[in-house]
């Protein structure tokens, strides 16, 4: 029930108040979402939607930073040696 799904803001319908709404697209499926808790979201931003309301704006820079760090995880720890250096062998059990 705590599932929340990321969707892209396509268009604001109503900007203010308790009925603030935007059209949000989830992999091709569009739905009107209440935006009262994400007033700063712009068109093309992604929001996480739970039970019909957006509960956060996805931080695109932060997401990119973490994914990059995950990509580097490979280079640091377990990839082939580079520049002739010996990489530590991966310890697996």
């Amino acid at each position: 029930m705590c599932l929340a799904i990321p969707g892209r803001v396509v268009e604001w319908i109503e900007r203010d108040g308790l009925f603030a709404r935007a059209r949000v697209e989830f992999g091709g499926v569009g739905r009107d979402v209440n935006m009262q808790c994400t007033p700063d979201a712009d068109v093309d931003d992604f929001v996480l939607v739970h039970a019909g309301i957006a509960i956060s704006r996805v931080d695109a820079d932060e997401a990119a930073r973490i994914l990059e760090a995950l990509a580097e995880l490979q280079l640091d720890e377990m990839d082939e040696p580079q520049d002739g250096r010996e990489a530590a062998p991966p310890t697996r059990r």
Partner: peptide, 11 residues
């Protein structure tokens, strides 16, 4: 629901 859901209910 947990705290995830309470904003929707309050709204």
């Amino acid at each position: 629901g947990f705290e995830t859901t309470t904003p929707a209910t309050a709204l």
